[in-house]
Structure formats: structure tokens, C-alpha cells
Amino acid sequence: MTRQIVLDTETTGLSAEGGDRIIEIGCVELLARKLTGNNKHFYLNPGRDSHEDALKVHGISSEFLRDKPRFEAVADELLEYLQDAEIIIHNAQFDVSFLNKELELIGRPALGQFVGSVTDTLAMAKEMFPGKRNSLNALCDRLGVDNSTRTLHGALLDAELLADVYINLTRGQDALLMDLEPGDNPGTVTTRMDLRGFDLPVLPANEQEAAAHEDVLKQLDKSSDGKTVWRTLAPAAAPFMA
């Protein structure tokens, strides 16, 4: 079973190559799409102050970080934890660039040498919701994930929120299989029910639903400047009707 680690970082600024450093790493483990509680969380001393704009985002002061370990002190523990896992990150390019720079500075290989793969939930969200805002807060609101405790960015809290967002983004990708869990009492058994053997009824859309569907297609077409596949392949196709 592939381990999934939802990861987030906070940094002193926006440019790893420009000298900015990681100040916080938060990791949340998923097994079989369920939180295990086996999480990792580090505050790090970056050896420099945060930019003013970054400080407004995360609120983590240099005074607070002064007695925290350097990245090299936690690198082995972090890499062992991430080993061979699928890493799930929102805007992965940003976090991976910072992790790679930290690893480079201590003479270690890039992150890709240790992990199984990296999944970018921002790229997933842009594909699923083209033309929409796809920040973590926006996705929490859209997918019904409670982010009421998120007043400032924090790596562990953001990783926990992203885990919920990821599960909602990928819901339905595991075929029509349902877990029935009678309860938490000792001796109970989890039953797997395969719905593919059922004769499921087909409920055709009515005129109002078909019109609403066509309206969504028009909105997607507008947001992509007329580059949607269904318009390209079938420009003369009639609106969807069941």
C-alpha cells in the first residue's frame, strides 16, 4: 500500500535561489486515504529574517526561530519519513524548489531521489475548476472543508487542510467500491461492497437540468477563450439533451 504524505512549508520569502529559506515543515500521513496521525512537524532556524510580506503571511518571528534546529539537523529524520511515499503538495514547484535548495546546501541529492512521486493539487484543481480561484482557502470553501481556524498560514495546519481537500478532489476515483464500517466496537468487521454488480437505474436529465448543463459548458468555453474540446471537435453539435 502506497503511503501518501501531504506536505507544506513556510519560508522567509519567495525565492530559494535568492537566499530565502524554509522556516517550517508540516507533513500529514495518509494510508488508504485515511489520516493515520503519524505526522511530522518542524520549526527551523533559517539563519536570516523573513521578508516583511512573508512575515505578514505566516507570523513566525525570528525571535521564535532563534533556538530552533537548522535544516541539516532534521534532514535525515525528514527524508526517512518521506522515503518512497507519494508526496502531495499545493503548488508543488514552490515547496520542492525550497526543499531541493536546502538539500543542495548540505550536499544531499534532490528530493526526487528519495520519494516515490510528487502530486500537485494546484494543477489538479486548475484542471477540475478552470477559470476559478484555486488557492487553498478557495478550495476549502468550494469543497466544504472547514478552514475557520486558519487566520495565518501554518505548515502543519495547511497540510491537514490540504489532506481533506485532496480526498475531496479525488473522491470517486477508486471505482464504485464502498466501505461499510458497522462501528468501532471490538470484533466488528469492515465489509467491502462492489457496486459494479448492481443494475443501476439510468435517470435522464430533464429539460431544466439539460439547460443548466449547457450553461456550464458555455461558461467553461468562455473561460478558456473558446478552446474547449467539445467545441473544437463538434462546433455544430446541438446542446446536450438526454
Rank of each mutant, 00 (worst) to 15 (best):
D221G: 11
D120G: 08
T190M: 07
H153P: 04
T191W: 12
A123D: 05
S117V: 02
R21Y: 01
R66Y: 10
A212I: 06
T2D: 13
I23W: 03
D215F: 10
M1R: 13
I167W: 00
C140K: 04
L136K: 02
P204Y: 07
G107S: 12
N134Q: 04
E80P: 00
G183W: 06
G226C: 09
R231H: 13
T188Q: 11
A54P: 02
R33K: 13
Q219L: 10
T190S: 05
A73L: 05
T151Y: 01
D120Y: 03
A138P: 01
G37Q: 12
R192F: 04
L217M: 15
D199T: 14
L65Q: 14
A236Y: 12
A175Q: 13
T190C: 03
G13Q: 08
E77I: 06
H90P: 14
R133E: 01
E17F: 04
A92S: 15
D199L: 13
I87W: 07
A54V: 11
R133Y: 01
T149D: 11
L139D: 02
C140A: 10
A110C: 10
F64M: 14
H51C: 05
L99W: 13
Y166C: 06
K56D: 09
I60G: 04
L152H: 14
A54C: 03
L111K: 02
I23K: 01
D49C: 05
T232W: 04
V57C: 09
A212H: 12
T191F: 11
Y43S: 05
G172I: 11
H90I: 07
D49L: 10
A210R: 03
L220Y: 14
A123R: 02
G112C: 04
L44V: 08
A32W: 09
T119S: 14
E104G: 07
A138D: 02
V202K: 09
G197Y: 12
E160S: 14
L139A: 01
G154H: 11
D179H: 10
Y43G: 04
V229W: 10
I60K: 05
D49E: 15
H90W: 03
K34N: 13
R133F: 01
M1Q: 12
L82C: 08
L105Y: 06
P201C: 09
I87D: 08
D20T: 07
Q113F: 12
G226Q: 07
Q208V: 14
K132M: 13
K126L: 09
L161N: 07
D8M: 08
H213N: 01
K68F: 08
A73M: 12
N45V: 08
P109I: 11
G18S: 09
D53W: 03
Y81F: 15
A92N: 12
I23L: 14
M193V: 15
K56P: 00
A54G: 03
D146L: 04
T12N: 08
F71G: 07
K101V: 11
G172A: 12
S62Y: 02
A138H: 01
L195E: 09
D164S: 12
G172P: 02
M1D: 13
G197W: 09
D146W: 02
A85E: 09
G13T: 06
L31N: 12
